[in-house]
Lab assay of single mutants.
Amino acid sequence: MIVFVRFNSSHGFPVEVDSDTSIFQLKEVVAKRQGVPADQLRVIFAGKELRNDWTVQNCDLDQQSIVHIVQRPWRKGQEMNATGGDDPRNAAGGCEREPQSLTRVDLSSSVLPGDSVGLAVILHTDSRKDSPPAGSPAGRSIYNSFYVYCKGPCQRVQPGKLRVQCSTCRQATLTLTQGPSCWDDVLIPNRMSGECQSPHCPGTSAEFFFKCGAHPTSDKETSVALHLIATNSRNITCITCTDVRSPVLVFQCNSRHVICLDCFHLYCVTRLNDRQFVHDPQLGYSLPCVAGCPNSLIKELHHFRILGEEQYNRYQQYGAEECVLQMGGVLCPRPGCGAGLLPEPDQRKVTCEGGNGLGCGFAFCRECKEAYHEGECSAVFEASGTTTQAYRVDERAAEQARWEAASKETIKKTTKPCPRCHVPVEKNGGCMHMKCPQPQCRLEWCWNCGCEWNRVCMGDHWFDV
């Protein structure tokens, strides 16, 4: 396979590697080409510095992935760790964990309700045991953590790749202090920090972006993250068709209702045909949960890209028209025109101005929308079919299609509260000796007794199943 190397943020060049090629071997190839010592090179990928003893497969490097290699003399205490030698983080029983690669970060837990604080980093599902597709590297999971809308060759929703760059020099040479644990960490600028490894760059702020994971991409090709779309790892039924499908869209209502993408497309087109989208002054033209839940309008309007190009163009047109109407304007009634106009409040005669090729020149009556006339309008008909009709959803289907309910059931079956801080902690095999993952707590306690870890627990039921 081919990976592209950008040395000291210059133009990239291809390097041929195998899945079992080590990072140090990659350094040696680059060092020979650039005429520099291999031990002064640092390989940066997806916000993480890659260790010498890791392989291309370990690092989730795919065909035509772009890695950054910078030349920086080692500072005291760094060289041993980078070589894969006596790194205290690798000691058996050590409590410190390697910062998780962005290629394996899962933010789907952050669609849980606000009262489930902490689960994004504490609760991990076991539903990723799908067998890898044919042709994928051994052991590589097909679980997708992110979804994007690819405006490039795909023109559809695709699995996405999370990447990070330095907000100062805009190069992907920043190593994160810690990985993101929720969508806010990724979507809110300057929320996460790190250290830029580019020479002479003092940058410390992280800037995240997404790429389409279905095809090789260049540095400049980015895609918009659709953070309401998630892999259906909890096997929730769709609120409309009641099938279990994946991926799904999880509405931001209190129940976190789930809808499959085909039904979401149908829901949007139906509402669009009836012009029953909601115009929100802050958000724009949007839709609420299909069950009509309060405070559930979709905030990231790129989710409506699921409509496809033709329907999305209609959505944008109707949204612009609705904006004009909300501002007190009118639409030209001549067939084939429909231009938005903003006449004076007491102006009865409205002319669709033909300047700049935008208007048709038609003069019409503001009251009856017919060709302009003197005197009273002959008839004014009330528009028919403008009443909002509820999208029919079966109550039982709505009850079963809740992301929140599956989460709470998982928590109930696989977790116990920490005796000190009461945060839910998952036990997935292993011994009875637990350690609270909350940095402010870190209590060592017994899963069996529910009390602080002691010699009695150690001698009596340390390794009970």
Rank of each mutant, 00 (worst) to 15 (best):
D39Q: 08
S296A: 03
P424A: 15
Q100E: 12
K151A: 14
C421G: 02
C150Y: 00
V67Y: 02
P137D: 14
E98H: 09
D115R: 07
R348D: 05
G355P: 14
N90K: 12
E374V: 07
A38L: 07
T217P: 09
L287V: 12
S205N: 12
L176Y: 02
C263I: 01
T21P: 00
N254L: 10
R42W: 02
D62K: 14
C263T: 00
E382G: 10
N58D: 15
N52P: 06
G354C: 07
D39R: 05
L443R: 05
D464M: 13
F304M: 05
V5H: 03
Q57W: 05
L266E: 04
V324M: 08
E409H: 12
N8D: 07
P88T: 13
A363E: 14
G355A: 14
C260V: 01
D18H: 11
N295Y: 05
F264I: 01
E195G: 06
S10P: 07
G328H: 05
F208E: 00
D280Q: 11
D106K: 09
T177M: 11
E426G: 09
E195K: 13
T415Y: 12
W403V: 03
I122F: 13
K220W: 09
E426L: 10
F210P: 01
P37C: 08
S384G: 07
I259F: 01
T55L: 13
N454D: 04
D262P: 05
E399Q: 11
A363K: 14
N273S: 04
S296N: 02
A134Y: 09
K369Q: 09
S131G: 13
D346P: 07
G179R: 06
R455N: 15
A398E: 14
F209M: 13
Q57C: 07
D62T: 14
S145W: 02
H215M: 01
F146C: 04
C365Q: 03
D20L: 06
A38N: 04
S407V: 07
V43S: 00
S167E: 05
K416V: 09
V70G: 00
C169V: 00
N52F: 00
T242I: 06
F13D: 03
T173A: 11
P14N: 03
L287Y: 00
S198Q: 13
P419R: 04
F463V: 01
T240G: 14
Q25M: 07
P153E: 12
I298T: 01
C260F: 01
R314I: 03
D126H: 08
A230F: 07
G47M: 11
K435W: 05
K76V: 15
G213F: 05
G77D: 14
G292P: 01
G357F: 15
N81A: 14
L50F: 01
P14Q: 04
N356F: 12
F304A: 02
R334E: 07
W54P: 00
P133E: 12
V105D: 14
Q311F: 07
L307E: 00
S101H: 09
R75M: 13
M327T: 09
T415S: 10
I229R: 01
L162H: 01
I306D: 00
R396K: 12
P133D: 11
W403P: 02
S22W: 01
Q165N: 10
E322A: 05
C365M: 02
K408G: 10
C150A: 00
E16N: 07
I259E: 00
V5C: 13
Q71K: 07
S205M: 13
W447L: 03
N454H: 14
E28Y: 03
Q34A: 08
M327G: 09
S10L: 03
S101C: 09
P343C: 09
T83Y: 14
A134S: 11
L272M: 12
H124V: 05
G203V: 02
V465F: 15
L119Q: 15
P137N: 13
I44P: 00
M327Q: 14
C59R: 00
P333A: 03
V186F: 00
A371E: 14
Y285W: 13
G308V: 04
T55G: 03
A390R: 12
C169S: 00
F24P: 02
T270L: 05
E321S: 10
V148R: 01
N254W: 06
G429F: 15
R402H: 06
W74A: 14
P288W: 03
Y267N: 02
E309T: 13
E376Y: 07
L107S: 15
V425N: 15
S65E: 04
A230L: 06
L266T: 13
H68C: 04
A397E: 12
P424G: 10
R305S: 10
C323L: 13
L187K: 06
P153A: 10
E322Q: 07
M432I: 04
S167I: 06
K76D: 14
G47N: 05
I298R: 01
F208T: 03
K161N: 09
V36I: 11
I122W: 11
A379E: 09
R271Y: 06
T386N: 13
Y372D: 07
V15I: 12
R42N: 04
A397P: 05
L123F: 09
P247H: 06
G361T: 06
Q100S: 13
S233M: 08
N273G: 03
R305A: 11
S101K: 09
W74E: 14
P113D: 14
M458D: 10
H302M: 10
A405L: 12
G84C: 12
L341D: 03
S167F: 06
E96D: 11
H11T: 07
T414N: 08
C166A: 01
Q440E: 14
C268K: 00
A120E: 15
H68E: 06
S10G: 04
E426S: 09
Q155I: 04
R128V: 14
E353F: 06
L102W: 08
V224C: 09
F209E: 13
P189W: 03
D86M: 11
R314K: 04
G459F: 15
H461L: 00
R163I: 15
T175M: 11
T242F: 14
V380F: 08
K220S: 11
C449K: 02
Y147T: 02
Q64I: 03
A206C: 05
F251C: 01
T242A: 15
T175K: 15
P333D: 03
L266F: 11
S218V: 10
S223V: 09
S233V: 11
F362L: 08
V164G: 03
L107K: 14
E376V: 09
N52T: 03
C352I: 02
D86C: 09
A31S: 11
I306T: 05
L307C: 12
G118V: 03
F45Y: 13
R104I: 06
Q276S: 09
I298L: 07
A291G: 08
I142N: 14
S407C: 11
Q438F: 06
Q155V: 05
Y312T: 03
V423H: 14
L162F: 02
G450F: 04
Y318P: 01
C201S: 00
E404N: 12
S108N: 13
H11K: 04
T410G: 08
G385T: 08
C360V: 02
A405N: 14
T103L: 07
R104P: 13
V5A: 07
N428H: 11
D87F: 12
V350G: 03
K129H: 12
T387I: 13
P247I: 06
L307P: 04
V111G: 11
L297W: 04
V121E: 15
W403R: 03
P132N: 11
S9K: 03
C59N: 01
Q282R: 09
E310Q: 09
V30A: 04
C95E: 15
G135V: 12
S286Y: 01
I44W: 06
D87M: 10
V15E: 00
Y315W: 09
C418D: 01
V15F: 02
V186R: 00
E49C: 02
Q347H: 06
R97Q: 13
A339G: 09
T217K: 08
D18I: 04
L297R: 03
R140E: 12
S131Q: 11
R256C: 04
M192K: 05
R42L: 06
A379W: 09
A206F: 03
E309M: 11
Q282V: 10
V465C: 15
T55E: 04
V17R: 00
P437N: 10
T388N: 13
Q34C: 12
Q34P: 00
P189F: 04
A320Q: 11
G359Y: 13
Q347I: 09
K369L: 08
D130H: 09
H257S: 01
T270M: 08
G336E: 07
G179T: 05
N52G: 06
I44D: 00
K413D: 15
V36W: 02
S384H: 10
V250G: 02
R455C: 15
T351Y: 08
D53N: 10
Y372K: 03
V30E: 01
V258P: 01
V15N: 00
